[in-house]
Write a protein that binds this DNA or RNA. Sequence first.
DNA 1: CGGGTACTTGACAATGGTCAAGTGTGGTGG
DNA 2: CCACCACACTTGACCATTGTCAAGTACCCG
Lengths: 228, 228
Amino acid sequence: MAETDKRARLAEIQGIVLFSGLDENELEEVHDLAIRKTFRKGQVIFSQGEAAEGFYSLIKGRVKIFKVNLEGKEQILQFVSPGYPFAEAALFAGKTYPAGAQAVEDSAAYFFESDGFRKLIINRPTIAINMIVTQAGYLRRHARTIEDLALREVSGRLAGYILEKTLDSSNFDLDISKSQLAARIGTVGETLSRTLTKLAEKGFIKVRGRHIEVLNRGGLEELLLGAE
Amino acid sequence: MAETDKRARLAEIQGIVLFSGLDENELEEVHDLAIRKTFRKGQVIFSQGEAAEGFYSLIKGRVKIFKVNLEGKEQILQFVSPGYPFAEAALFAGKTYPAGAQAVEDSAAYFFESDGFRKLIINRPTIAINMIVTQAGYLRRHARTIEDLALREVSGRLAGYILEKTLDSSNFDLDISKSQLAARIGTVGETLSRTLTKLAEKGFIKVRGRHIEVLNRGGLEELLLGAE
DNA sequence: CGGGTACTTGACAATGGTCAAGTGTGGTGG
DNA sequence: CCACCACACTTGACCATTGTCAAGTACCCG
């Protein structure tokens, strides 16, 4: 029982991008350090400003990383997908979490205590490289978010979001609430609602509930670039 | 002559955060890979969208990393200080530079070609760790910028900027033009100008040319938090 | 079927961007 | 050493985008 348990955990750990390409021994080491935690939908994992003891790697569900201001407005920095780490920056920069984390669905993650993980990583170049790779990806994504907020109006940001979600098909279902989408995109629910109908009126998209269909990709792309 | 040259270069390389803690041999390896480049004030180092062949480490001067939109509005993602790398994310994510880079002063940097550097880093955990550390720092900084843009008005962002520059003394001189500061803070010159005089009228600061003196730290801190 | 939450829509206000016209100010050349 | 030009910055008037507050509607879950 404990044995199958361990095997299951090793399988989960293998699915984490940070640990891809590791051999058996290395996986064992990671396993011995990892603490499995589960979170219910809506549960706060940590809050901004809290002391950072370590970082997480999500294996199931979804987690949002966000900031809030005094008035309660929220900005979502990113949604974390299974396989990906979050709060890894806490490992080497600063002693507190610079943002909050909350489970958006029922979720499970492995927690890695900072000191132990640092020791581990020093002798495991593969993990270090994997870490650099995912951080590089996050860095790009953040740069894009900054660009969005500073240089695009909300119709452009929304267009960008929709285009990303429809790289292959021509339609998709929102996997988050519209108010969360608003917070991701850097606006509020009301404005998102209006912008969505505006795009629909222009004939670029069709919206029914959470289902969005793209009718005119070119139109969206122009918006993204900054035309009107 | 070539010998003193090399020694000078090794000294420069030693001053780069990515390569701190390396032994002689490792420094040699890095040296053999590094291409020294100089840039005049105002010179474009690379443009957004350009194929990314490698990354840079600044050793002298200053460089800005920025995005521009079609209307020509600019958002500065960061100013790079000597010792720090830029475009390192290009090493492992994507084939093009996601932003542009330009020398703000006469500058010098070492260029590292991606493939070669990747090979090097695999056997040099120290470099990998250093890389993770600096990326973690950049990640934090970006998160902060996103927070600023999404959740603070420009007076709050400006207050934050001034507070950061006056952690020890109570006054400082702007090391960039006001229009560049505006672009860093996510606004335009006119608004920055107005905001500066507004803060001065409230008695929080005193401005003369590029010199800024803080008169009421508490007031600035409130602005940063979101009061008005 | 009921109740609550999420979303939409409307009217309004405000932050901040744009355009245009000054006002320096520093550096260069006469 | 002064005059002048270019450029950075300031200030004013205006307007657009977006946020706020409020009310109404739809939809989902129990």
